[in-house]
Amino acid sequence: MLKLEHVNKAYNKDHHKVDVLTDFTLEIGKGEFVAIKGPSGCGKTTLLLIAGGLLEPDSGEVIVNNENMYQKSPEERSMFRAGNIGFVFQQYHLIPYLTVLENIMAPGLAKGVHVETDKAYELLERFGIAHRAKHVPGEMSVGEKQRVALARALVNEPAILLADEITGNLDEKNIDIVTGYLDDYHQKGGTIVLVTHDHNTAEKAEKIISL
């Protein structure tokens, strides 16, 4: 499903090369729920961005659904991402001037993607935020925002969900709600790569990889 082979990535910081990932190899099968754990700055987010086709590694290969991600053109990669990968971030990255419903339907802006309004509503119902459909993110709680972000990531029914510290800003109650949805998605056959530094959240995964 997702394979990273001998991936290397380094950044230049103050004219110094900082190695973030060195000869990193990982294989995640279809329907697996994997948590990547590690302290801040260990390269968790970098790993997620590389896996999602947003950050090209210095070397190594990234195979998603048997397709080499970085052999594609940027446009092909965008289209591939739109159809196969869902992203959720700690900071939600909701578009502030769009309503909840519009935010969930935003993936429809990608080429070749069409999001049905009914399906968006169905997701809102499932995530318990249907009553917030016409509200903008600024009018919502952090837990609700994260649910909207999760709903947006799942609206296209991606094969893989890449989640970056999605419980980082949440209280325990909301952590339970959000991880519950992740479980739900996983139960339906979804593949999840969850990056977290929180041990309890990582515990929900089938496999934990420490960086």
Partner: peptide, 16 residues
């Protein structure tokens, strides 16, 4: 900036 980042992440191409 954030909006551009997330749009790119959900598959919106740079030309869009």
């Amino acid at each position: 900036k954030s909006e551009i980042g997330i749009l790119r992440a959900i598959g919106v191409h740079s030309s869009a």
